[in-house]
């Protein structure tokens, strides 16, 4: 019998080629670059040395920014779960014929450039922005409240960017729950809260955890909200990479920081897979 074993590979070839060309090769380049040296003019000198990695850990400056990034990423995840579960649950229970419109509204922010969305907060929260203008107008304050360029505004920018990812992940997971299970729980004497706690919440956790992973990874790698809405001292690790690569033309050191970030994210994803299972992400899209 003629073997058909090549067929799956033939079908997978376009995707595998894309992953190879657009992900594997660039990552390999970054890894190789991380061992190179940089000339004062900005030229890169091929070498194999660990100086760039040693530099990252030689004092607490760089690790401190990495720790800050992880902390902000966790804070963003927690806030997104809290703020994202409620609308997702509402959409799940909603019998409204406008449900699809509501879901579409979740996607609405993606139709506007991320930079424009982030910068719009300046017009809302700035010293001459909408909020201050309103508070001054009604006489509640005499001088504008300084609200921008701090960690709070960075968090706000991140949530604005990432909340839709969380809502959609949770919603897809909730949508897969058989509603008759809730009815069964209620028939067996559960209150509405107990039914939610014992049935809905556990079954929606794959979606929550998938959303958490996605939000965490995206937060760790983003640099625009800290750059536009952050003040002195609010830089995250991606800003550091941006400055090393773009600002000082130090590609080798920028690559080393990227590899460190990549390794850390790999450990987090591995841990997630070990204890929750990466297949939970797919489950959340398939229903439970």
């Amino acid at each position: 019998m003629k073997s058909n074993s090549w067929k799956p590979w033939a079908l997978l070839a376009p995707s595998l080629s894309a992953v190879f060309l657009l992900l594997i090769i660039p990552v390999c380049f970054v890894i190789v670059y991380s061992f190179w040296l940089r000339a004062p003019s900005g030229a890169d000198i091929p070498a194999f040395q660990m100086g760039n990695y040693a530099k990252f850990f030689e004092d607490f400056f760089y690790p401190k920014i990495l720790i800050r990034t992880i902390r902000i990423a966790f804070e963003t995840v927690i806030l997104c779960v809290v703020m994202g579960y409620i609308p997702a649950y509402y959409f799940y229970l909603s019998q409204s014929r406008y449900k699809q419109v509501f879901l579409l509204l979740i996607m609405l922010p993606f139709w506007v450039s991320f930079i424009i969305r982030t910068m719009s907060w300046i017009n809302i929260m700035g010293d001459t922005g909408l909020i201050n203008h309103f508070l001054l107008k009604i006489g509640l304050i005499e001088t504008p409240i300084s609200m921008l360029y701090n960690e709070f505004t960075v968090l706000m920018g991140l949530i604005m960017y990432l909340l839709p990812f969380m809502v959609l992940n949770i919603y897809v997971s909730l949508e897969g729950i058989d509603k008759s299970l809730l009815e069964a729980a209620r028939c067996m004497g559960c209150t509405e809260w107990q039914a939610f706690r014992e049935v809905t919440l556990p079954l929606s956790l794959p979606g929550v955890s998938a959303g958490c992973l996605l939000v965490f990874v995206l937060t760790a790698g983003t640099y625009l909200p800290p750059m536009i809405l952050g003040g002195p001292g609010n830089d995250m690790i991606a800003n550091l990479i941006f400055k090393r690569v773009i600002g000082t033309l130090d590609w080798p050191f920028g690559s080393a920081i990227s590899v460190i970030l990549l390794s850390l994210l790999f450990v987090i994803v591995w841990t997630y897979n070990r204890y929750l299972g990466i297949n939970q992400i797919f489950k959340s899209f398939q229903g439970n």
Binding site: F61, I65, P232, G233, D235, L240, K243, G247, T248
Partner: peptide
């Protein structure tokens, strides 16, 4: 540049 970046970052 590196020194300046550090100071700017706190």
């Amino acid at each position: 540049t590196e020194k300046w970046d550090r100071i700017k970052a706190g």
